[in-house]
Design a binder for these strands. Sequence first.
RNA 1: GUUUCCGUAGCUCAGCAGGAUAGAGCGACCGCCUCCUAAGCGGUAGGUCGGAGGUUCGACUCCUCUCGGGAACACCA
Length: 566
Amino acid sequence: MKDFKGEVAKKLFDLNIGLELEEIMLAVEIPTDSKMGDYAFPCFKLAKALRKAPPIIAAELAEKLVGDSLFLKVENVNAYVNFFIDKKVLLQEVLSETLSKKENFGKSDLGQGKKVLVEFSSPNIMKPFHIGHIRTTVIGNSVYKIMAALGYDTVRINHLGDYGTQFGKMIVAFRKWGSREVVEKSPIKEMNTLYVKFHEEVETDPSLDDEARAVFKALEDGSPEEFALWKWFRDESLKEFERVYEMLDIEFDSYAGESFYSDKMPAALETMISKGILKDSEGAKVVDLEEYNLGTALIQKKDGSTLYSTRDVAAAIYRKETYDFYKNLYIVGSQQNLHFAQWKKIVELMGYEWANDCVHIPFGMVALSEGTMSTRKGRVVYLEDVLNGAVEKTKEIILEKKVNTEAIDQSAKEIGIGAVIFQELSNNMIKDYVFDWNKVLNFEGETGPYVQYTHARACSVLRNADMALTADVDYSFLTGDSAYELTKLIYAYPAVVIEAGEKYEPSIITRHIVDVAQGFNRFYHDEHILVENEAEKKAKILLVYAAKTTIANGLALLGIHAPEKM
RNA sequence: GUUUCCGUAGCUCAGCAGGAUAGAGCGACCGCCUCCUAAGCGGUAGGUCGGAGGUUCGACUCCUCUCGGGAACACCA
């Protein structure tokens, strides 16, 4: 597809205005008001060198470019040169491209031959999946899809929280108060109950904590009884998580969690020692990072057992050796900013120059209106309940509207769960937010169902058109405002995917497909599509197809289905 | 206390590596289904972009300070 901005920049560059092509590229912008043109070039920066007032420069440049075949019109307004691309050229470029690329429209091969690891979801396997876990899970899945669309080789890693002192606690609690039957019946619920019980009991009996630490040490040292129990807890929990992942349609390539790295830590510790960064402190081993303003990182406890920082270091090394990654991404909450900063610095101090290819992608917290979520205090909203709630609500709406009721279960699932995912991926991920049922169950406006509805609407038009698609149409039928604006939004889509990939920010795509949906609905409202005139109809359904395809492709990158009917 | 993130309309948020009169959605009010799906479309009301300085031809955007809120800060993950 033609790079119109690039072409504009090149034309300006050829006029020898004293700026490098790159500088011009950065300066060329899209006017706030489309009545000002498709692209604009502000001339303020040229004033000094040319010793002329910016508006005069703009006028002169505009005059030189008038008549160029790429443009319908070039004019100056104050200090700006405004470019109006020949609408038919742009329409043809964009619409023929979408028709030939189809589901590949927006994909590229930027990342060809490069491997990107995406670590996400990574639940603690004894704790229920609550609404707080949805972020890493859904964002991670989308980041993975975006990277894959950009041509990178991807590996999805679920770094399960399946190790640590907590398992010592779990084993102690299970031996004291638990039973196999209850755990098997409802694993996570029971484990959580036992875990909570442990914390209650430890209030009156602090020795339980020491006991738990000792048990974890035994586990880490390879004691068979502890290992068997631990393995069993892990297997039972995983079964439950699989259920949620299936609802969300999410898969992983690796479930190598913390435990996987237990035997890889001694080597990492050795390297730290040989680099002289590991120090003794109060009986424990630490890396002093004060000079980098990162405090002190605890690497090994005084009883010799390890912490998750240690495991993360060992994991990074293992991943570099195994995958030789180009980027190693961690979709983990912003609460862990310090931990990741320390960890990265340690990897760097260990002499690994690839430390900079490890990127922590933080996101904000989810809270409830009553306060931060706390499983122990019963202040928690389970993810499964949210998903089921959204599906139920969708069913009610479908029954109320009496549309497409034959496939109600499938539709309700796609729309309800899509609504939850979409909501999650709507905002900049760094922002904290408060979970609100009303918001999740609102299906109007900038929501997943709105975008899906628009897609279904477009599909319906195409069905009713009953006409083969071709790019060989008379584009002059599509020069109306709403048709042209919609086309420009479609044109921007591939660049939006690239930007989302560079910034690891799925919401950029979410926002854009909302814009495309709005653009389509406006066009749908302003113009009658299935008109008598065959030539006009042929052109219009091509645009409908392009909009539909863009929306579907965008939704796919978010991990959301695009129903053909709803 | 230190570090860090956030602070834009009543509410939830966009705002492209500073640029032309700050944009959506929800909520409120008013319109639009004899016409391709009204989960839709249009209109009205609503903002000194937390505050103060600074850099710049130009600042919501960059810098400094400040106020408010969240988070992290050694034997948990």
